[in-house]
Design a protein around this nucleic acid. Sequence first.
DNA 1: AACTTAAATAATAATTTTTATTATTTAGTT
DNA 2: AACTAAATAATAAAAATTATTATTTAAGTT
Lengths: 134, 134
Amino acid sequence: MEFTQTLRDQELKVTPQRLALLEEIEHAGHIDVDALYAILKMSFPAISLATVYKNVSQMYELKILEVIKVPDRKLQYEIAKAPHIHLACDQCGNVLDMNKCIDELMFSAESESGFKLNHSAVVLNGLCPSCQSA
Amino acid sequence: MEFTQTLRDQELKVTPQRLALLEEIEHAGHIDVDALYAILKMSFPAISLATVYKNVSQMYELKILEVIKVPDRKLQYEIAKAPHIHLACDQCGNVLDMNKCIDELMFSAESESGFKLNHSAVVLNGLCPSCQSA
DNA sequence: AACTTAAATAATAATTTTTATTATTTAGTT
DNA sequence: AACTAAATAATAAAAATTATTATTTAAGTT
Ligand SMILES: [Mn+2]
Ligand SMILES: [Mn+2]
Ligand SMILES: [Zn+2]
Ligand SMILES: [Zn+2]
C-alpha cells in the first residue's frame, strides 16, 4: 500500500491499525471519529477509541489528514490532498469534493486584506441532485 | 436597543441576560462560549454556563446567530448578517470579516454540481498584516 | 532468527465539553 | 396585582476528548 510510505515519511511506525485507519478514511472520503471507530472495530475488535483519537490528531498535525467542519456535525477527517471545495447535502448527509480552483479568491482576499494566507476551508451546504427530486 | 426587537420577532422573552449576550457577541465580533461566559459573569455573577449554551444554541437555530469554525479553535458565534468571508490570523487569533462577494463561486458550484445551495462557510487562515511584521 | 528498545496499543481513568433536569424566578399578559 | 408560560441558576448527567499506564509490537541490531 502507498500509505506505508506515507507513514514512514512521517516517521510513524507502520501498524495494521494505522493502515486500516487510513484506508478506511480514504474509502469513506470524509468520516468522523465515531464512524471510523465503529468500522475499525469490525477488523480490530479490541481497538481502542483512544487509539483512533490519538492517531487522527497525530496525522492531522503531520498533515497526513485534513479536517473539515460541516455545520451541525462532528469533525470529519479526510486524506490530505490539494485544496478543494466541499459540498454537503443537508438531507442525505453526503459530502463530496469539488475540484474548483479558489486561487483567485485566495489571491484577491490576500491583496484586499493584507493577510498572507496559507489555508482555506470552503464548505457549501444545500441539497444534492437526488435529494432535490425526492 | 435593537436586539429587543430581534428577540421579540423570534418570540423569545427579552431578558437582561439575553440582551447582554447579544451585545457582547456584537461587540466581540466573533466569540466562543467560554469567553462569552467569562465576560457575562462580570455583569451577571450568578449567570449559569448552561444558560449561555442554551441561548446561543437557541439563537443559532432561530438564525439570530451564525457560527463559524476556525481550525483548532472552539466554535465561534457571531450576530447573523449577510454571508461573508472570514480571515483568521494563526498568530494573534484575530478573526475579521471580509465583505467579498462569493455569489459567483456559489453559482458556478451549483451549476457544476447540481446542488441547490443555501449556505456557505469560507474561512481563510494565515498571518494578518501586523503579525507579518513582528 | 533472537535481542533490544522506543513507540504504539488497549484498557482505563480523568478531564473537558455539552446537554438534561428541576426548583425558583421573571417577563409578558390579563 | 395576579396569572402563566418561559427563562434562569444550580446541578446532575451525558457525551466527547485527552491523559495515564501496563502490555504488546515494529523496526532496527546483533
Ligand atoms: Mn474533501
Ligand atoms: Mn463574521
Ligand atoms: Zn442528498
Ligand atoms: Zn495576527
